[in-house]
Amino acid sequence: MKTAVEIDVNSGIGTAVMPKISHSRGYSCSMLNNTQPFSEIFDPAQGQPGLIQEIPELRATKILECTQCGKCAAACPLVLSGFSFYNKRVIQTIVVGFKDLILNDSSIWACQSCNRCTEVCPMGVDPFEIMLATRRMAVREYALPTTAIEGIKSLYDTGHAVYISEAGIPRKKLGLPETPPTTTTYHEALLEVQTIMKKTVLAELGLIPMGVFGITERL
């Protein structure tokens, strides 16, 4: 019988076997690899020492203030729902230097951005900022889920991360204009959004077709 979290006393960073909700709650197994327990033993000496430098460069400057007290984890919805890499453990893994562990897991992309961690952190670390910086690091390694790419593409193509083209029908029924007064109605506004996005790192990364650096969409 497995307990909720098994800490391996021989390891440096505490290997954990995450509880599978699928077993205890009767749900079917999830599609993503965050349900797979990782029970190898990690040698902290094998970590990549420079990893901790990358995070402040990606604009999360207070990571070294973290004392691993765990208040953020106690408040985190990712912990409550059994994801492997929540705020505290992401920070710990970065400090020890295991980039692949984080990149091979979808946890950071499930962060709800709820900011509970930022609210409770006694050291002013702003763990949410670190989750975002970790995502930025993953994006630079092209390790991001397709849902994220879809959202970015939708943002570029329509000005909205969530866009439903059939929304015109219910909107019309309610007596609202078929499209809201946003970039979806005003094409010049959409061009402004696209101009801004072309001026950011997104264009250099080439994640979505933006008509720059020779990457265009051909149907």
């Binding site: 506004a189 001026k199 997104l202």
Partner: peptide, 20 residues
């Protein structure tokens, strides 16, 4: 606020670049 766009939500630009 004619011409407003996405806020943008945290899964998009915030996960790529702070300035963007």
């Amino acid at each position: 606020l004619i011409g407003q766009s996405c806020c943008p939500t945290s899964g998009t630009m915030p996960s790529i670049d702070l300035v963007g």
